[in-house]
Design a binder for these strands. Structure first.
Lengths: 343, 343
DNA sequence: CCAGCCTGCCAAATCGTTTGGGCACCTTGG
DNA sequence: CCAAGGTGCCCAAACGATTTGGCAGGCTGG
C-alpha cells in the first residue's frame, strides 16, 4: 500500500503532474480550465492524496517545521503552556514543532541547533523557562528566531516576555482596592527581571494609591515555600503588621499560608494573600484557594509563533528594529483576598 | 552563504559525490582507498558539511523523526518528564521529536496524525497524560507506534505503563515498616487503572503484613485537595482512627494535611501521610515535605523511544506478541512518615 | 487566408542524497 | 603477451515534489 503521489493523481485525472501541482497550489499566472481543475481536485480527494513534505521541502526549502529549543522543560508546568500556545498557533499556520531541550548545556545546545538546521526548520523558538536575559547563540543569526520568556542581550532579536511590572502593579492594586493600606511584599533574592519588575509594580501601585513606600514591608528570601514561610513570619511578627501580603510567587504564598496558620491568622479574614504565577497545582489546591496573577505562558507561545511567522514571511526585507513584545499578566481572583479586619 | 552539500565536499576532495557518500556512510562492500577516505573525512569536517536531512529522508524514507501525540500536555508537569525522557533517549539515536497535542479531540487527532505521516515520521509515540485505556486510531496501524502511560484496547500495540499495584504496595509497605497497623486509604472515585491498581497494592501489602482488610478504612472522593480533605476528615473522625494515611495522590494528601491540622494532629508525629505521583510542586513545598511514590514518567518516555526504535529496526519481521511494559514506581522518602504515636 | 494572440497544458530541470551497476586500470599467473 | 581477477572509483537513476519555459491548437482581426 504505497503512498499515493502527485503522479498517481495526474494519471488518474488524465493530466500531467505539472498541472496537478499548479492546481493544488493555486499557482498564480497559470491558466487552468475550470473543469480540469474540478476533476483534479476531485480525484486528489478521492485518492486521499497528501503531498510528501520532504520532497516539497527539498524543492522549496520551506518545511513548515519550527524548532523549539528550551533550556529546561522539566519541572515547571509553565513549559507545557508555552508549548501548547505555540502548538495551537502553529497548527493554524500548518506548522509543526520540533522539540529539543538542552538542559542549559551549551555544548548540547550547539548540537541541538545544528540538528534542527539540518532538518531544515523554517525558524526557531528559543524559550527560557523563566524570564531572564540570555545570550543568543551565534548559529541562530542565520535563521529566523524569536525568544520566548527571555530577553536578548542583542536587541535585534525579537522576544516575547511577560509584563512583570504590570503584574506586580495589578496584584498590589487588587489589595489596595480591597482597602488594604499596609501591604507586605514577600519577594525573592535572585536578581532577575521578575524580581525587579514586580517590586517596581508594587511601588508604582503604592504610589498610585498615595501610600509611602516602607522598606520594612519588603522581605526577601528564597523563592520556595520555606522561604515564603520565613519572610512571612518576619513580616507578620513585626509590631505594626501588614494586613495583606503580596508574594513573589505561589510557592512563597504557600509558605505564607503556613506562617499565618501558625500565628493563628485566618486567610483571608485576618490576612489577605496574593500570589504570582498561577501555578494551579498550588493555587487551586490551597485552602482558601489562592488569588494570584497569571503569567501569560500560553499567549507567549502563541504570540511567539505569530511573530516568527511574520519574520519568516518577510525574511528578505529584514527590517531593522525588533521590538520586544510585552504581554499582560492577568489577575486570577480566587478566595484569598478580602477587606482588612477592622482593628 | 549557501549550505554546503555533498557535491561541494566531493569537488574539494577531488572525488565524486558517490564516493563521498560511501565514505561518510561507511557503506559495506565498497572498497575505498584508505587515503581517499582520510582526505574526504578531513575535507568534510573542514567545510563543516552537514547532510541535508530532507534529501536523505526523501531517498531513504527514514527521517529520524518521531511524532509525539498526546491528548493533554496542559497542566501537569508529568507531561514534561515524559517528553524529557523521550527526548534524551531520542537524542542518543539521533531522533527528533515532532510534538502535537490534540486536546483529546478526535478530529484534531486524525489531522495531527495525518500531518505527522505527511512529514514522514519513522514512528509515533501516543501518550496519554494519565494512565488509561485508549482506543488506537486506525491510521496508526500503518506506522510503528508505542503507547505511553496508556494501555491499548488492542494487545498487539506495545505500551509502557507504570506499575500502579507495585506503587500502592510500596507506599503501604513503607507505612507498615514504620510500625503502622491501622492505615487509612484516601482513594479516588474514578474507575481508572490507577485507582484499581493502587487499591490492589494496598490490599496486597496489608495481606503481606498479616493485617486484615477493613473496608471502613478506605474512603473515596474526588482526586483533588478538597476531596482529600473530606476523605481524610471522615477517616480521622472515626472512633478508632488510623495512625497513617495513604493518599491516592499528592493533591489529596495536601487536603489530608489540612484535615490533620484542623483536628490538631501534627504530621508526622500524630499522623503519617504518604502520597502518590511525586508532584514536586506540592510534595516538596508542603510542610513537612511529603513522602510519596513517584510515577516513572521520565523512564516511560525513555523506554518508549527505545521500544519504538526496536520496532522500527525490525519492522519487516513484525513479531506477534507485543508485551506491555510495566515500570516500577519508586518511593520518594521525605518527612511525612514516622512511627505511630504510642497510645 | 494568415499573422498573432490567447488558452490550456506539458517536458524537463531542480532540490541533495543514496545506490545498483559498471568501468578503467593494475597486478598476477600461465 | 594475454586472460582473469582485484581494486578503487564514478555514472546515472531514483526519491516526490515545484517551477521555468515552452508548445500545440483554436480564435480573432485584417
Amino acid at each position: 500500500m504505497k503512498r499515493i503521489g502527485i503522479k498517481d493523481v495526474a494519471a488518474a485525472a488524465g493530466v500531467s503532474a505539472t498541472t496537478v501541482s499548479h492546481i493544488l497550489n493555486d499557482v498564480e499566472g497559470k491558466r487552468i480550465n475550470v473543469e480540469t481543475r474540478a476533476t483534479v481536485l476531485r480525484v486528489a480527494r478521492e485518492l486521499g492524496y497528501r503531498p510528501n513534505s520532504l520532497a516539497r521541502g527539498l524543492r522549496t526549502s520551506r518545511t513548515y517545521t519550527v524548532g523549539f529549543v528550551s533550556d529546561e522543560i522539566a519541572t515547571t508546568p509553565h513549559a507545557g503552556q508555552i508549548i501548547r500556545g505555540a502548538q495551537d498557533a502553529g497548527t493554524e499556520h500548518g506548522l509543526l514543532l520540533l522539540m529539543l531541550n538542552t538542559g542549559g548545556n551549551p555544548e548540547l545546545e550547539r548540537k541541538a541547533i545544528a540538528l534542527l538546521l539540518q532538518h531544515g526548520v523554517d525558524g526557531i523558538l528559543y524559550a527560557s523557562m523563566y524570564h531572564r536575559v540570555v545570550q543568543v547563540p551565534q548559529q541562530l543569526r542565520s535563521v529566523p528566531t524569536v525568544l520566548v520568556d527571555a530577553s536578548a542581550d542583542d536587541p535585534t532579536v525579537p522576544s516575547i516576555v511577560p509584563d512583570e511590572e504590570q503584574g506586580g502593579l495589578t496584584a498590589t492594586r487588587e489589595l489596595l482596592e480591597h482597602g488594604h493600606r499596609r501591604i507586605g511584599f514577600v519577594t525573592n533574592i535572585d536578581d532577575i527581571p521578575a524580581t525587579r519588575g514586580r517590586l517596581a509594580g508594587y511601588r508604582a501601585a503604592l504610589a498610585g494609591g498615595g501610600i509611602g513606600f516602607d522598606p520594612a514591608l519588603v522581605v526577601a528570601d528564597r523563592s520556595d515555600a520555606p522561604g515564603g514561610y520565613r519572610a512571612a513570619r518576619t513580616l507578620l511578627s513585626s509590631a505594626h503588621r501588614p494586613t495583606a501580603l503580596f508574594c513573589f510567587n505561589d510557592r512563597m504564598a504557600m509558605g505564607a499560608y503556613r506562617a499565618a496558620a501558625e500565628l493563628g491568622l485566618t486567610v483571608p479574614t485576618d490576612l489577605s494573600v496574593i500570589g504570582f504565577d498561577n501555578q494551579e497545582l498550588i493555587s487551586e489546591n490551597l485552602h482558601p484557594a489562592l488569588t494570584t496573577v497569571a503569567l501569560p505562558h500560553y499567549d507567549m507561545g502563541a504570540r511567539a509563533i505569530a511573530r516568527l511567522q511574520a519574520v519568516i514571511d518577510t525574511s528578505e526585507t529584514t527590517t531593522g528594529p525588533a521590538p520586544q513584545e510585552v504581554l499582560r499578566c492577568p489577575l486570577v481572583a480566587r478566595d484569598s483576598v478580602a477587606p482588612p479586619p477592622r482593628s
